[in-house]
Design a protein around this nucleic acid. Structure first.
Lengths: 163, 163
DNA sequence: TTTTTGGTTCAATAATTATTGAACTTAATA
DNA sequence: TATTAAGTTCAATAATTATTGAACCAAAAA
């Protein structure tokens, strides 16, 4: 593993922290990105990142839960391997967005608690509806990507050349 | 302030934590929601939430930065008041989404670091493009809300009755 | 110009969260 | 059945982050 790759792993760690995940989660993601193997064993990750078994165990579970990586098991082999997810890239955004449903509920509930109807009530109503609505819209956008990604990617590349 | 409102403030604090902000940020948001005044002074927030000046000072700045609240100052009054933002509710989502640009860059960079072209390279390319693309799409969706929110809100309510 | 009010800054501390490491579980092999 | 390998769990600790509180600054009032 060269220096640039090692630096990349750390950079990934720091970015994942910004997204509210752990540094170690980002490191594992980064390691799977730059590794030449498509599947990497639990132990190899542990050695490469100089971390404990407990940490790798917990963090890989996190990454699986949010859909960044997949575990792979093979018959006649008791090891677990990991690889970057095969799921479409919208899956993670979808999961993140579904959190907004809670914010929609919070604002709706807030409206119900107000002693009087005022501008804030109107804002709470709009905000609540907006967050419910946008979850759906984003779902549609993601579907659109899935259906048309070849076309869209082509157009984007074209764009890059043009401008 | 009744018990339900106090409970709401704490609930808001916990939800904001889930979103990666601080508990105190959520409490301030919650307080502004349930307060009957549309504008609340620095000192009133501090007293209501039993927090320090330093905390209120730092956290209100955070909330302003992400677009949840607005500071209000009046001539002949040296106090600062705060109220829930008047900006459209998409502003915050937009800001959050712009973070994805970094993830697009991370995956693009990762592709460049790979020793060989493989399935992972293809995934990195697609993911990078997807994240760039979706930022734009979400912007469009938010614009749509702004233009058509009256209509959309009407339709959503209708929906609620129908189903 | 002095005092007071309203807020900011920042070092210290409290609270929280991530990581380790050792004991434990489970399942495959001998 | 006993042994080993691969992970998991969880209490202890390390690391990080939030909050306090005291000293400070700036602007308005006296």
């Amino acid at each position: 593993m060269n220096d640039k790759k090692l630096a990349y792993i750390e950079e990934s760690g720091l970015l994942f922290e910004q997204f509210g995940m752990t540094r170690m989660a980002g490191r594992i993601f980064g390691y799977l990105v730059v590794s030449d193997k498509e599947q990497v064993s639990f132990d190899e990750i542990k050695e490469a990142l100089q971390a404990s078994k407990g940490s790798i165990s917990g963090v890989t579970k996190q990454l699986i839960a949010v859909g960044f990586i997949q575990p792979i098991t093979l018959p006649g082999d008791r090891k677990t391997y990991f690889k970057l997810t095969e799921a479409n890239p919208g899956k993670i955004i979808k999961a993140r967005f579904s959190l907004f449903a809670k914010f929609s509920e919070l604002t709706q509930k807030g409206k119900g608690l107000k002693s009087k109807d005022d501008d804030v009530s109107a804002w709470l109503e709009e905000t609540s509806m907006f967050y419910t609505w946008i979850i759906d819209e984003v779902d549609k956008v993601i579907e659109k990507w899935e259906k048309e990604k070849r076309k869209i990617m082509g157009a984007q590349k074209q764009n890059g050349i043009d401008t």
